[in-house]
């Protein structure tokens, strides 16, 4: 904050001191207004509502911390958080690890058009609506008639009840969401890889370092800020998934593939229990903040900024 208040004397190479405050206000006002109205006010609203018993018919009554007492004893909520975390962390891992692998492989020497084709096919599901994606996979993962089980049969494996068993339903959500989102991670990796100066790798080749050493000594540290960016963004995104479980499995069987957003949605717009849903929203926000804070803390140990 202080770095922005520059005293006139040291303001720079002979330029007259400028006051940008007014211009900044003008440039920031659209963002500030929309932030206040559509982010800050609703956030305050969630906090407010979480102390009320509020349904859609009446304006609600103040109940103090009742909603939070309920949270603590809601075993279903705990279970849903567990399945959300399981699916989100797996999606995160696939994006960060498999995405890196595919992006590195794409660096191999090959014709331009072929590289373009691979990039395009990897990124394509990212732009298709999650509900369309989930509908397609609902057919592909069908236990008796689906293509996936057919392929498994061809290579001699047993049929899997992808959508109907509590062991496999979350796996289906993981597969389908990763399939949709991995293209974006690959793209960000490609960009990060392109930013690594060629001289570094060439020097390592001259020194006789093999591909494995080059990856861990040059590519990985140079790429660490990109990896960190993807970890943070993918964590936030994968904890928010809603469409895939909704369309694929309806969160079931039981709560096996239910995510926290689905649970919140059902409490708010299924049971019309808006106060309790708001309390769930608060916990969700706190979880995201805590996860991001932990990641920033840990990142100091492994990221490398030039």
């Amino acid at each position: 904050m202080t770095q922005d208040v520059v005293p006139p004397a040291v303001h720079g190479r002979g330029k007259p001191p400028r006051k940008d405050g007014l211009a900044a206000l003008a440039f920031l006002s659209p963002a500030i207004v929309t932030f206040l109205v559509f982010v800050l006010a609703p956030t305050a609203g969630v906090l407010y509502l979480s102390f009320y018993d509020w349904n859609l018919l009446s304006d609600g009554t103040f109940v103090g911390t009742d909603n939070f007492d309920r949270l603590v004893h809601d075993e279903r909520l705990l279970h849903v958080y567990g399945s959300t975390a399981y699916m989100a962390l797996a999606i995160l891992a696939v994006n960060v690890v498999v995405g890196l692998l595919l992006a590195v492989l794409l660096e191999t020497r090959m014709p331009r058009w072929l590289r373009g084709f691979f990039r395009l096919s990897f990124l394509f599901p990212f732009v298709v609506s999650a509900s369309a994606v989930a509908l397609i996979w609902r057919f592909l993962l069908n236990k008796d008639l689906g293509l996936v089980n057919y392929v498994l049969g061809v290579i001699g494996l047993d049929r899997i009840d992808w959508l109907g068993s509590s062991a496999w339903a979350p796996v289906s959500v993981i597969v389908v969401n990763s399939w949709k989102t991995i293209g974006f991670s690959i793209l960000v990796y490609i960009a990060g890889l392109q930013a690594i100066p060629d001289v570094l790798r060439e020097a390592a080749i001259v020194d006789g370092a093999n591909a494995w050493t080059r990856f861990w000594r040059i590519t990985f540290p140079m790429l660490s800020p990109t990896i960190f960016f993807l970890v943070v963004i993918n964590t936030i995104n994968s904890f928010q998934i809603f469409a895939e479980p909704r369309v694929l499995t309806q969160g079931g069987p039981g709560d096996a593939s239910r995510t926290i957003v689905e649970y919140l949605y059902d409490r708010a717009f299924g049971d019309f229990d808006l106060g309790y849903a708001s309390a769930i929203g608060i916990t969700f926000m706190l979880v995201l903040i805590a996860l991001t804070a932990i990641q920033f803390r840990l990142s100091r140990r492994w990221t490398f900024y030039e």
């Binding site: 963002a31 609703p42 956030t43 609203g45 969630v46 936030i236 919140l264 849903a277 926000m285 991001t292």
Partner: peptide, 19 residues
């Protein structure tokens, strides 16, 4: 601005709907 990334629309959907 960066902090707002941690308040996705899924968190504020209930008050947004009421408003």
């Amino acid at each position: 601005v960066i902090g707002s990334l941690m308040i996705p629309i899924q968190v504020t959907i209930v008050p947004l709907f009421l408003v």
